[in-house]
Simulated scan of single mutants.
Amino acid sequence: MFSYASYPYPKSESFKEIFVSSLGAGLSVYLFLIIFQPFGTENFQHPYKFLLLFPYCIIFGITFLITNLMVSRFTHWNIGAEFLKIVIILFIGSVLSYFYNSLFLSHVKLELGNFFYMFLYSLAVGIPISIIYVLSRYIYLKNIYENSARDISQHITVPTTELRQNPLKISTQSTELIIDENHFLCIQAMENYCIFYFLENNNVKKILIRISLTNALMQIETNFIKKCHRSYIVNLGRVKSLKGNAQGYKLILTEIDFEIPVSRTFISSIIPQIKQQNS
């Protein structure tokens, strides 16, 4: 299991995905409480028992939501970081749940020992379930994307040298760059700058320009030149093959020595187009 800790892991990227997963996490906690009734819940008798247990759903759902929104800013994520995130969620959720239980349900004196008992019980229940979920999701996504990438790559034709004669013009206050669309490869964003990769006399050339990726995309986007990641714009007509992993896809261009990632938010637009242009 420890060998998996450093493997890249796909975290939620969009607010919608984070919200839906947070809702699912909160409802899972609620269902677990009403079915198994841990922490002495089976001895708690009240005509509105299940209604009074519902705030636990809200507590863990909001904790899950806030934690995932915070970690969504990290660019690199792996299985070990995902497990650490889960422990943090269980800890914060246990703290809030303990206060809710002590102050509104059981009305008992707050004691550190009782909290640690609840936290350890939460870990004992939450960690095994989380391990099964995280590893299963990793293996499932890895197999899906790897098989799909292999199938798509088999149908990608070798890019020809003369496809489109369309000049791309990039203008800033201090720079003006004109590249033929057929010779354009990709753009890599680096903070306030972008590195433009293109062919010149059959050699790869790169130029650093002070421009945002959004501004660059507005000037050069075509049917083939698309944004595929928050840090990359790529010429889909130059894609030679794909690789797949648990995080999604990576595009391979023979002219450059690095792979271009495709964010999961762009998969639904990028991958079908690659399939269509090679069908």
Rank of each mutant, 00 (worst) to 15 (best):
N235H: 10
F36E: 08
S241C: 14
E181D: 01
I270F: 07
C228H: 06
G237S: 03
L123E: 15
F2H: 09
Q188E: 13
Y193P: 04
L163Q: 12
L217R: 01
F258M: 08
I58A: 14
I58H: 00
E181S: 05
E111T: 14
L236T: 09
T161H: 14
V204Q: 13
V29A: 05
E181H: 09
N223V: 02
F39N: 00
F91I: 06
P10V: 02
G248R: 12
I132C: 11
K16L: 14
R150G: 09
K250R: 15
V158N: 14
I66S: 11
L110G: 07
P272F: 06
D257H: 10
L163G: 12
E17D: 12
E200Y: 09
L90N: 11
V125Y: 04
H183N: 15
I86G: 12
I178G: 05
Y9K: 00
K227V: 11
A189S: 13
I152M: 03
P38T: 07
E146N: 12
T265C: 10
N143A: 00
K250H: 14
K205E: 14
L69K: 04
M70E: 01
S174Q: 15
I34W: 01
K275R: 10
A189V: 03
Q277C: 04
T222P: 06
K169H: 09
N147R: 15
M1I: 12
L199G: 04
L213F: 00
I187Q: 10
I66T: 09
F74R: 13
V20G: 00
E191F: 13
N43Q: 14
K85N: 13
E111K: 03
F44I: 05
R210F: 01
F104P: 05
E176Q: 03
E191K: 12
L185R: 04
L242T: 02
G80R: 07
R137M: 03
L105A: 00
N182H: 06
I35A: 05
W77T: 00
E176H: 08
N68G: 03
L213G: 09
Q37A: 12
I34D: 06
N215S: 12
I267T: 15
H46G: 11
Y48F: 08
T160Y: 07
G61N: 00
I211D: 03
V239C: 05
I144H: 15
Q154C: 01
F258V: 02
K250G: 06
F91T: 14
I225G: 02
N43Y: 14
P55H: 03
V108E: 13
S102L: 04
T175F: 13
F91P: 03
Y249N: 00
Y140E: 09
T63G: 12
T214R: 05
L23A: 11
S263W: 01
A246V: 06
N203P: 01
V20T: 04
I156E: 02
N78E: 06
E221P: 08
F2R: 13
K85H: 02
I260F: 03
L31V: 09
F196W: 08
N78M: 02
S28F: 11
E111Q: 13
E162C: 02
I132H: 00
F36I: 10
G40C: 06
S130C: 05
Y197M: 01
I256R: 08
N78Q: 10
T254C: 15
G244R: 03
Y9H: 01
I86C: 01
H183T: 07
K16D: 10
L84S: 12
N203T: 11
Y56P: 11
P167W: 04
F266I: 08
S122T: 09
